[in-house]
């Protein structure tokens, strides 16, 4: 079961990472367009600024689940280093479950938030705020699924602060 969870987690994460890379690429290009427009083209495009904010939020929020899959979110091991291995595992599993509950909360109320946003006008493109706000429930659902998978994969056996060299 732990093996299956591990494979599912990796597969899901690979897909999400591809999507995130695409969003980041669009983000970089979008901001370049904004700069080029202001100094060269003078088209006064109204959308690069808004689009950049929403792309940034989508990319960063989706990437939370990638950080979960790789156990990159920074934590503290001061106490855990001093307690027996079995207790440590229980503690870490309990924390995964609390985090799972947290993201389920964000997911559940995020749905209502996005539906309310769908009724509000974004003042640009003539669109609603729904597509932007949907980043909250979607990314929370992904984070929750990843948490469940890595909980089954690691069963509290993960090293803390493992790959933080990549984290800032």
């Amino acid at each position: 079961m732990s093996d299956l969870a591990s494979r599912l987690s990796a597969a899901l994460n690979a897909a999400v990472e591809r999507l995130v890379a695409l969003l980041m690429l669009l983000l970089v290009v979008d901001v370049w367009i904004g700069v080029v427009d202001r100094y060269l083209l003078h088209l006064q495009l109204p959308w690069p600024e808004v689009l950049a904010r929403y792309l940034m939020i989508w990319a960063a929020l989706l990437a939370i689940s990638c950080g979960i899959a790789r156990r990159e979110h920074i934590g503290l091991s001061i106490l855990l280093d001093r307690i027996p291995e079995s207790l440590r595992r229980i503690s870490l599993m309990a924390m995964d479950i609390v985090a799972l509950a947290l993201f389920l909360y964000v997911f559940w109320f995020g749905i209502g938030f996005a539906l309310d946003g769908a009724k509000r006008q974004a003042l640009i493109f003539g669109l609603s705020l729904g597509p932007a706000y949907a980043a909250i429930p979607v990314s929370a659902a992904l984070a929750a699924i990843q948490l469940l998978l890595v909980l089954m994969r690691d069963l509290g056996g993960q090293r803390l602060v493992d790959q933080t060299e990549e984290a800032i």
């Binding site: 006064q44 109204p46 600024e49 808004v50 003042l123 640009i124």
Partner: peptide, 9 residues
């Protein structure tokens, strides 16, 4: 500089 209000722009 304007706010992101189409009418202001």
């Amino acid at each position: 500089r304007t706010m992101t209000l189409p009418s202001h722009q």
